[in-house]
């Protein structure tokens, strides 16, 4: 395996003194699509938030491109090339599609570069171009999710974290959105995604981590996980 660009080592974190993560370790290499799967409340979002800098780990370390970034605030992580597309999208609802995208590129000041990125995300999601003047809140759930991904891409991240893209979407849209994830690899971006839909996620991912009660209980290439008895029984209901 190549050198990892993201290296999470023994991270513990929690809310208001209540521990949620009990020593999470994981790695992501350049160009990979890695999925974190697990049941409700397993700590997937907490893991993402800690990597993204929205929370400080109480123990352990996060390294990004061999630099120790443990505890750095989220806005600094964005500048370093790590962008988190949060659970529940968190779009600026009252702003237009285009304004949301522009805010996604906040760290870039060069107008030409921003226009170029806009063209690229419009190319990836043509619907966003059609709706560019529409308010985010008036878009459908699936369109909003695409907007959230596109907004994340506007910062031209090296690593993008995608949290529960399928949340609240009907099955046909889940498929569309997950297909979009495979398409964003065209942007030369490495992807770490969280999904409750274990089967769909592992089908598109290269590797996966299974998290249970704040611990990694299993990891490996997706095919291997999909075939393992534990995963089949616990998550796929087979």
């Amino acid at each position: 395996m190549a050198d990892p660009i993201l290296k999470v080592t023994d991270v513990c974190a929690g809310y208001g003194g209540v521990p949620v993560l009990h020593g999470i370790s994981l790695e992501v290499c350049e160009g990979e699509l890695v999925a974190i799967v697990g049941a409700n409340g397993a700590g997937k979002t907490t893991t993402m938030r800690t990597i993204a800098g929205l929370m400080r780990p109480t123990r352990g370390s996060v390294e990004f491109y061999e630099e120790d970034v443990t505890g750095l605030p989220a806005h600094v992580m964005v500048k370093k090339g790590l962008t988190y597309v949060p659970e529940g999208r968190r779009l600026f609802q009252k702003l237009s599609v285009r304004e949301n995208l522009e805010l996604g590129a906040f760290t870039e000041r060069n107008r030409d570069v921003i226009e170029e990125r806009l063209a690229r995300v419009y190319d990836l999601f043509p619907i966003l171009k059609e709706r560019s003047d529409q308010k985010a809140e008036t878009m459908s759930g699936g369109e909003q999710q695409m907007l959230a991904i596109a907004r994340g891409l506007m910062s031209a991240p090296k690593l993008i974290l995608l949290d529960e893209l399928s949340l609240g979407l009907q099955p046909s849209l889940v498929e569309r959105v997950l297909r979009a994830v495979t398409e964003i690899r065209r942007f030369n971006v490495t992807v770490l995604m969280v999904e409750q839909r274990v089967l769909e996620a592992l089908e598109i991912a290269d590797r996966g981590y299974v998290i249970q009660s704040g611990r990694v209980v299993m990891s490996g290439p997706s095919g291997q996980l999909l075939n393992s008895e534990e995963v089949k029984r616990a998550y796929l209901g087979i």
Partner: peptide
């Protein structure tokens, strides 16, 4: 714009690099 974004959703604004 950074002020507006922060007013609307502080955490989302941070994720934009603000």
């Amino acid at each position: 714009w950074a002020i507006q974004a922060t007013a609307m959703d502080k955490e989302a604004a941070e994720l934009m690099g603000i």
